[in-house]
Simulated scan of single mutants.
Amino acid sequence: MHGPGQKYLLSAIAGLVILLGSHVGFCADAAAFKTATAEYTFLSGYGITHRGFGATRTQVQTFDNIARFGWFLSDEAGSGWYRGRHELLMELPLHLAVDPKVRTMTGGYLLGSWKFTSPEDFVPYVLAGGGVLFVDLGLPTMGSRLDFSYQGGTGIQYFIAKDTALSFEYRYHHISNAGTASPNEPLNSSKILLGITIFR
């Protein structure tokens, strides 16, 4: 990892370390999560495309910001290690490209998530979904500014208070115009996201 986006990731990591440091010796449990009806999350982080993965040829680095609202669809279900809760996630992303040009991508995502409830003080989860993006990257290889995204990933939420958790997330992220225009170079990337979640 190198280039302009690295400083954004390092800044995000430093912020997380400061937050964790301020709560050393304190560990809240995840009881509030098990009865919550909704969550409010803000995530920030770094993304980079994988040149040579699929038809991706262009390196794009991004500083990512995502506002998320989550609505729990179930109480605890299942048993054993996979016991958890279904959640519907609605996200408003702002992806600020910092390489090769300073440009923006924004739109909306709808994802499904399964959050595991067996740990006592943290919540692992998986998610997948997609959405629509307005892509203003100035790349002639993408063929269209109206693009589509699908993505999937995993993360963990560590509780620092009764209803507040730090979030750490990795996701694979795909953008293309889904064959609606030509050319159609996809952007296949990885994103590392850090943030804070409040449960209600």
Rank of each mutant, 00 (worst) to 15 (best):
Q59C: 03
Q59L: 12
Q59D: 12
Q59G: 05
Q59K: 11
Q59Y: 06
Q59T: 12
V60I: 09
Q61K: 08
Q61D: 06
T62L: 07
T62P: 00
F63E: 13
F63S: 08
F63K: 06
D64Q: 11
D64R: 07
D64M: 09
N65E: 14
N65K: 13
I66G: 02
I66D: 08
R68T: 08
R68E: 14
F69W: 13
G70S: 04
G70T: 01
G70C: 10
W71N: 13
W71K: 14
W71L: 15
F72T: 01
F72Q: 11
L73C: 08
L73Y: 02
L73G: 08
L73E: 10
L73A: 10
S74R: 05
S74H: 06
D75N: 12
D75I: 00
D75Q: 13
D75W: 02
D75R: 13
E76S: 11
E76R: 09
A77K: 11
A77N: 05
G78W: 05
G78Y: 09
S79H: 13
S79K: 12
G80Q: 09
G80D: 10
W81C: 05
Y82Q: 07
Y82K: 06
Y82W: 12
R83P: 04
R83I: 00
R83S: 12
R83C: 02
G84C: 05
G84A: 05
G84S: 06
G84V: 02
G84L: 07
G84Y: 03
R85C: 03
R85Q: 09
R85F: 04
R85S: 03
R85W: 06
H86G: 06
H86R: 10
E87V: 01
E87G: 00
E87A: 05
E87M: 08
L88A: 10
L88R: 02
L89N: 11
L89T: 01
L89E: 12
L89F: 03
M90D: 03
M90N: 05
M90E: 09
E91R: 03
E91D: 15
E91M: 11
E91H: 01
L92S: 06
L92A: 09
L92M: 12
L92Q: 06
L92T: 02
L92N: 03
P93V: 04
P93A: 07
P93M: 08
P93S: 08
P93N: 07
L94G: 05
L94E: 05
L94P: 00
L94M: 10
H95C: 01
H95E: 14
H95T: 02
H95Q: 09
L96K: 12
L96S: 10
L96H: 14
A97S: 15
A97Y: 04
A97C: 11
A97F: 03
A97H: 07
V98C: 11
V98R: 05
V98F: 07
V98Y: 07
P100G: 14
P100D: 12
P100L: 11
P100N: 11
K101N: 15
K101A: 15
K101F: 10
K101L: 15
V102D: 15
R103S: 13
R103A: 14
R103F: 01
R103Y: 01
T104R: 03
T104Q: 08
M105A: 13
M105Y: 01
M105D: 10
T106R: 15
T106K: 13
T106N: 15
T106C: 07
T106G: 10
T106P: 00
T106E: 14
G107F: 00
G107V: 00
G107I: 04
G108Y: 06
Y109D: 14
Y109R: 10
Y109C: 04
L110D: 05
L110K: 04
L110N: 06
